[in-house]
Amino acid sequence: MAEYWNVNPDYEISAKSFLADKPEADVSLEFEIAVKDFVNAGKGSAEVKNTLKRLGVDPAILRRIAVASYEAEINVTAHSEGGKMYSYIYDDSVYIRFEDKGPGISNIEQAMVPGWSTADDLVREMGFGAGLGLPNIQKNSDLLHITSEYGSTTTLEIIIYYS
């Protein structure tokens, strides 16, 4: 199984200890992402965004969370057999996990290269598939962790801190 890590050094300790403990969140959201359902794609991340607005998260941080979760949601819509988005909201950070039903990423390192994409024609016609999804998620998150097996499933986790 292949794995990819990217952690903002400022948050390395807290992020890793978070992943080890996975404390229960007071507020969590669950969203079903259907295969190639571009009509509803983005609604899960919009829900997270609207929840965070009510909690008073800094507007600039809110936009980072919006971009990272939107891109990840689109990725599941465009490239997978569908999946689920789980969002856990804490008082200092948000942890979002995307679990799909496959088919897995054949080469994660390559997928991280800006402009590289395996998007099919349908996806490109919809205006997606520019190969900027994963790099954009990385840019806007404090932790990005991808585990994937080609021919099997992919899990993508992000953590973003509010300050």
């Binding site: 007071d26 507020v27 929840t51 607005k53 009510r54 909690l55 008073g56 998260v57 507007p59 909201i89 804490y90 008082d91 509010y162």
Partner: peptide, 23 residues
């Protein structure tokens, strides 16, 4: 300037508790 009236509470810890109750 913002008119941040959508806030549940000024304090994020309180806001999260209210959000939990809201859900």
């Amino acid at each position: 300037e913002p008119r941040s009236i959508m806030l549940l509470d000024q304090d994020i810890k309180q806001a999260i508790q209210k959000m939990k109750k809201l859900n």
